[in-house]
Design a protein around this nucleic acid. Sequence first.
DNA 1: GTGCGTGCCCTACC
DNA 2: ACCGGTAGGGCACGCAC
Length: 836
Amino acid sequence: MVGNIKKGDAKEIIETDFIPVDYSHFDWQEENYVRIIGRNSDGKRICLIDKFEPYFWAIFKKETSEKKIKEIQKNIENIKIESENRTTEIKKTEVHDKHFLGQKVKAIKIFITNYKDAHPVADKLDFPEIEARREYDIPLITRYIIDKKLLPLHQYKIIGRNVDLDFEFGSLARVLEVDSCLFIQKISSIKESEELSPKIVAYDIEADELEIGKGDITMISLVSKNFKKVLTWKKTKSRQDYVELCKDEEDMLKKFVSYVKKLNPDMLVGYFSDGFDLPYLRERAEKNKIKLSLGLDKSQPTFMRGRVPSGRISGIVHIDLFRFIETVYSQYLQSETLGLNEVALEILGEGKKDFDKTRKSNKIREDEWEDYFEYNLQDSILTYKLAEKFWPDMQEFCKIIQEPLFEITRDSMSQLLENYILHRLDSYDEITDKRPLHDEISTRRQRKKVEGAFVLEPKAGLYENIAMFDFSSMHTSIIVSFNISKATLLEKPEKNVHESPEVELNGKKSKFYFSKELGFLPDMFKRLVEKRKDCKKEYKENPNPVTKARSNAFKLLSAAVHGYIGFFGARYYSIESSASILAFVRQFNKETIEKVKKAGHNVIYSDTDSVAFTMEGKTKQQVLDLLKKLNSELPGMMELELEDFYKRGIWVTTRAGGFGAKKKYALIDEKGKLKIRGFETVRRDWCKLARDLQNIILQKILKEGNEISALEYLKEIIKKLKERKVDKEDILIRTQLKKPISEYLSITPHVIAAKKMEEQGIPVDVGMLVKFFIAETKGNTKLVREKVKLPDEKGEYNLEYYLGHQIIPAVENIFEVFGITKEDILGKKQKSLGDF
DNA sequence: GTGCGTGCCCTACC
DNA sequence: ACCGGTAGGGCACGCAC
């Protein structure tokens, strides 16, 4: 179905299929245009250009008369703003019946020449009849996608005319490295559409200094399908054919650009590349006085400021895979850090090559460079493989959220959800509410915390035959069932409305009321949760990477709803809603506990949306019947599910008060699979020795139902510790550095470790995991921090510390359940370290 | 000088 | 600035005795 795609033949009409990948906008003759880069099914790279007509809304107060509206419309049409180099005028206006926050309103759609004029024009509209001005803060591309329905990664049929490269859009279209450039005339959807098979290129650099641009870049690796390359200027013999020797750094940078052009990727993927590789390349290009013209329009990468700067390459989607994995996948990863090595090991079963690159390159021996190249190449190989692995996830998020790949791989969860909402408001005829400004954000941030969920204190002990119920998507199903949102919140109680339990907000106790007329957000969230259920079912029936990714995307979005409503940066923030939702959460949780008790069970534990209880001799069927009964009593779309049946479970006391410890338990299911929550086993800031020990002890106790062999095992480990046979790796403590060293008020062991690293010239970054161990020291110091040593420092581990502060604390409360005390473990008579 | 409460800090659960 | 409330627990520190 593809026409004869070639550049030239100005104005010729072309028809082609097309999948949008990269979106940007530009100004020409003071007007806004959108430029979309994508592919057709022949793999040709096509650029589409479309006109964008910017507009925003002015919403009238309820009682405004038709006459007054017409009058104001005229006034608005006459607005002119003179600025230094141009005059801003209103192109046209239209009066529409719309909805705003669920209310029917009359609103004027105000079309302006240039998107940039939206704010100044909006500021001019100070008519008393105008209640609000909205949508001047919607990003241009978002608006374009919503209005034209040209969704990223969907396939379309496009009819367009060849752009006259000599006359239209200045040199913009002419310099573009694409197969064809069309001005859009018609977009139509395709029924049996194809998916994009993206061309991915992964890259990675090695540099002498970690500070951006400070040292030379010694090598750059590039990996794509059937392609691998390491570029370097280091003159050393290499037997590997993938190593290409460049004259100098400048030549290497130029070759990098030319290889990227030759490979012609849709996506250029790095790992941490927003924060390291791309800005480094850009800086070094500048130092070498050359242009890093990676863009399809030969432009250099640009960096948008944000929490982390985002590196954008015109026409090619630059993806920092780390950022995407961090938001959408980190909760599923066991890895303690999200570094390339650990993530790749867990997901691909393959890690980085072993190479000590902490040395400056002049310290690297001639014969070691070969390994360094291989190390560098491997990083790109891993990045490439991860990109392939996560492509279904990126694709599904992109299709569901309907924002471009560049955005969805960098957005936080609440931004993703907000974009999901923005792209669906059209079907409710809703005008989008505004993004909070600085003052509003600080007010929101200053408010007192609202009371959260309820957690039941467990009674410590070993339990047999346990069942657990939990509410599915509890917060979201409460929102839907009680129609909770900013727009459905009523100012005062009315007849026949939803009423929240009493909540305390800013020191005042009150109830909140929500209309029973279905709100657009509750309706949208209802669809979201239903979609989540459908996709979960789809995945179970047909498990594959795509259905898994889709199911996961809807799961994450459903789970983010409540957080979004209470998030200070949200357009649809509503603290009254958030407080009400949490009050309902507490109420339903407590009611469920009571009902389960009343049915004759012993409720052991409960946290937020779950209840764990013993079977008390009842059959599984009886428990399922109870579940059915409880469900029949729940309102709306609220639903209680069976989490699972468990053979045994253990709850312990807190170290401090001897109360039952919350958020800390271990269960074993009927297949022998363990579910461990909160214990040191799952905490990365405990040493491996203590964690592994605790894990095995929990396993033995839960499998066997008693402590006998667990105790034997413990004694073995203590013996091994005392004989100093424990590996160094197993006694390392890892703690994250959450802020710069200087900002710490209290100087803890991990801060000391970080300081030591700094002294040794090891780069210390915020967010890094600091590794250290507690060593035997001379003198009579009490402070742990004075015994801190870095992993490669000489010294014996501190026996007393590891016994008294790692091993014993990790198991003490577990054995206490069986009436075995610390003294029993260590030998009764000895005050210090007894021997067995 | 010890011992305990408190604040800081980190990390987990949901 | 990028979901937030609930919770456990280690370490340092300062006050009470």
